[in-house]
Structure formats: structure tokens, C-alpha cells
Computed example of a mutant assay.
Amino acid sequence: MVRRALLFFSAAARTVRCAQLDPATADRIRGAFVGALVADALSLATHYEYDATRIKKFYGAIDRYYAPGEKTGGTTHGVGWGARNFHDGNGNGPAKQAGEQTDYGDYNLLVAEHLAATAPSRPFDVAEFLPRWREALATWRSWICTQTRLTYNQVAQGAPVSSLGGNSNAMSFRGAALLGYYNDEDAVANAARKASFTHREATALDGSEFFARVAFRVSRGAAPRDAIQEVAAASSPFVQKKVAQALAKVDEATDPAQPLSKEDFVDDLALTSMARLWDVGKSEPIKVGKASPTEGTLPGAVYFIVKYDNNLVAAARANAEVGGDSASRAVAIGAVLGAAGGLGAIPPELGAGKLVEWDRALALLDRMPLLRDDDSGEL
């Protein structure tokens, strides 16, 4: 009898808490997930194009969705990897088209798919996610990164979950949908780290957790800069240093008295000035500020979020115009600023009928515990 009463109380409490999710918060949660996809899709054209002057020459302003390298012969200049189409379909179908996702957006969709299938019964679990992940990779039309390939082979060889992934410092935030799955910041942060299981280096995981916590707080009503500073204050020394660096660079780039603010390529110079050179050994060295390592991706994303405060489209466009591994920054930028503005932050020209995954994204969100209509509770 006592056990039955406790179960009833627990279920009732979950239902009440779910019902108390106000419309504004629900809209911000939806905005975070769809915003991540919008920013990612805007970066598709110039993903792995490392020459900002070339981007401006061919595209001008990135004011709509473009196919990969649409105006540069179908390729982008991935320094160290040569000019190629990094989203050519992998032999699994046609190359990505305007309004589709890079691998970063596809990963966020895949995690959302898994959450929708398991909601509301249990937390995110990598072992449970792996079959869906392996099945998706068989038809994956986006770029498949080195760490994903490595992890796929580890799984095929029977490696335990605890040892999966490579020691890559590239940040891969995949947790935008988690904001609608958990109503607890620590749970969101923990699941975001787990979802980055292919990249197990400490700073990469810290970066994923950082943006998960920031997006969570913004989706619950905090201002982006406030959330960034508050989360950083309780984060690792690495995160604290990188956030401070980014905020200082925003101040420099927006101060009329500073030379940087007068540059034509102010955002490009801002990102590259926050990074070391990285000699990839195949052609010329690149600036890490535009590449995938978290030491550049984290401050770069923070820079765009804060400089283009509460303007998702302006930040996402500026990010795409800088190039490099722009999609790694894009999903973080879109999640935070999408949470700030909700679905209303996304204009019609980037929304339904333009973003290929628009309908699917909203359908997946409707199955999240905090957003579904059937009183099935929350985690």
C-alpha cells in the first residue's frame, strides 16, 4: 500500500510539474532546438571553407540557405584536406542541398530521435543509443569525422562504452533537444557529455557541457551573456579562460576606439586572433580559432552569441561568413540564441518550407516529455 501510494505521488508530481511548463518556456525550448538546426543549415555552404575573403567574394552576405560550396564549384577549401565537397552523400544518396544539415545538425536530430523514442521512461544512455547510431551511419549523407569512424570500429570490435571515442579536442555539441527532455540543468549537462561519446578529450566534453548549461538557463529565462558568465564562473579553469578571452574580444571588436572594430573582416580577425597556429602537415597551417578544437570553437561561439546579442539570424549569418568548422560553432550559437528568442526568432525565409527538417524537428519536439500533451511526465 505504501509503495503504491509513493508511486501515485511520484506520477502525480511529474504530471503537475509538466503542466506547469509555461508557454514562453516551451517556446524557448523549441527555439533552442530549431535554432541550432537553422544556424547549422546556414553554415552548410561554407563549412570547411577557411578563406573569409573568398566567402565574401562569392556569397556576399549569407542571407539564405545554400548547398555545400554552391557558389564555389561545389567544394570548400578544407585546409590540410584539400578542396572537396565534405557533404557529398558518402555514396548513400545525393549530396546535401540548400536547407539541409551538416553532420553537427544531423547528430542533434539523431539524439532527438532517440529521446523521442525513449521518452519519458528513462535517461539518455549511450549503450541504448548505439544501435540507432550505427544504423544511421549506414545511410549518413553528411561528413563522417575521424572520431566517429574510430568509434564505429571500436563498437564493432566490442569495446565497452567506457572506452569509446578518441582523444580529440574537437567540440561536438549534440544536446539541443535535451532541453525538452529534462527539467534539470545537471541532467541536461550530464546527458550532453554522454552524447559526445565519440570525443572524450576533457576540453571537448567541457565545451559540450558548458553550452548545454548555458542553453538550459537561457531557455528558462536567463539573458545569454548573464548565463555565459554565471556558468563559466562554476566551470573548469579552461572554460573560464576561454570565456574571458571571448568577452574581451567582443569588447575590442565593438569599441570604436579600437583598430579591430574598423576592419572589414572584423569577425574573422577576432576569431583567428584568439588562436594558435595548427600545422596539419598537409598544406598550410590554419588558425585554430576557425577550426574544430574547443580552444577556438568555444570562444568563437561565445563571441558571436554576445556580439549579436539576442539576434539569432545575425549571429548565424556572421558565423557562416567566417567559415572554417563553422557548424561546430553554429549548433551552440543557434541553441543559445534560439532559446533566447523562441521560434519567433526564426524568420519565414529560414523556416517552414526552407529548412528541410523543419516539420520533422517540430514533430520530434512534440514527443519530448516537457512538451508532449499526454501528461506523461518529465525526467
Rank of each mutant, 00 (worst) to 15 (best):
M1S: 13
M1Y: 14
M1H: 15
F8Q: 07
C18I: 07
P23D: 05
A24G: 14
R28M: 11
R28H: 06
R30M: 05
G31R: 05
V38P: 01
Y50C: 02
A52Y: 06
I55Y: 06
R64D: 06
R64N: 06
A67F: 05
G69S: 07
T72C: 02
T76F: 03
H77W: 11
G82V: 08
N85Y: 09
Q97G: 14
Q101D: 09
T102G: 08
G105E: 02
Y107V: 06
A112H: 01
L115W: 00
A117Q: 12
T118I: 13
P120C: 06
A127W: 06
A127D: 12
W140A: 04
L150A: 04
T151L: 05
P160G: 07
S162Q: 13
L164Q: 09
Y181I: 10
E185Q: 07
S196M: 14
F197P: 03
R213N: 03
G221Y: 03
A223F: 01
V231R: 02
F238N: 13
K241V: 15
K241G: 08
D251H: 09
A253T: 02
D268F: 10
L269A: 00
R276N: 14
P285M: 03
A316T: 03
V322R: 02
A363L: 11
L364A: 02
D366G: 15
R367L: 10
D374P: 11
